[in-house]
Amino acid sequence: MRAKYLLRGLAGVYLAIVLVAPLVFVFWSAFRHGLGPFWSAISTPEAVAALKLTLITALVAVPANTIFGILAALALTRRTFRGRRVFGALIDLPLALSPVVVGLALLLVWGEAGWFGPWMIHHGMPVVFSTPGIILATIVVSLPFVTRELVPVLNELGVEQQEAAATLGASPLHIVWRITLPAIRYGLVYGIVLTTARVVGEFGAVAVVSGNIAGQSQTMTLFVENRFQAFDLVGAYSASVVLALISVVTVAAMRMLNRRGIR
């Protein structure tokens, strides 16, 4: 009996120090002078521009990776082709990469001295130090999530229903739309939620490729760092709270999907 309370206390203290206290502290710091300073900190032109850039990035990166995720998961579970294992391993690879390394790799391709960078700059479409670079960096780091959620779901689903539909004369697109997508919808949404969380929260890769110019190429996470370095702590905490609230919504969405029994 004593051991039970000892363990409970141990776990409680550990979580309090590592998790709870820091989370409570951000909210407390942002709101300790009331809603006024919080509101004025997140309604400066730089803050609004940062939030806008984060939203634009999410609006491109999430759909792009969702479509890729569906295609890749279908290929991995429904087809045999040469290099299938390599294909799967490459999709997983961004999880093993430091975000800074991702940023560097993109710089070496799209930067001023990179493989394709000079050509893009010459044709008036610079990638690095502008929005396309930021979007590209977040796409790389959030690439695996949809595929990783869908592969087990598709394996479980099997192909019988699709075969039945095909026998009855349904076209392949029709089958995907009417049979496959409805069957995998919870797994798909779960993958999209994870992707969005990662896209909104990405810092390292974006820090390398963005140039970090306030009001121009600054996402919310870069804005937090920038405010902190400028000793504007209220600004940093306020922007952090906005990001923390987004992650709370993300976790809530994940929980609701969990309860629907997808995992």
């Binding site: 502290f25 994870l194 909104v200 929260g201 937090v224 952090s240 993300t250």
Partner: peptide, 24 residues
Amino acid sequence: AVDVLLDLPFALPTIVAGLTLLSL
């Protein structure tokens, strides 16, 4: 609630995590 709490480090931006630990 503890179970839910454990999902947060997955979803919380890392820069926010660093900032809060540093300020606390």
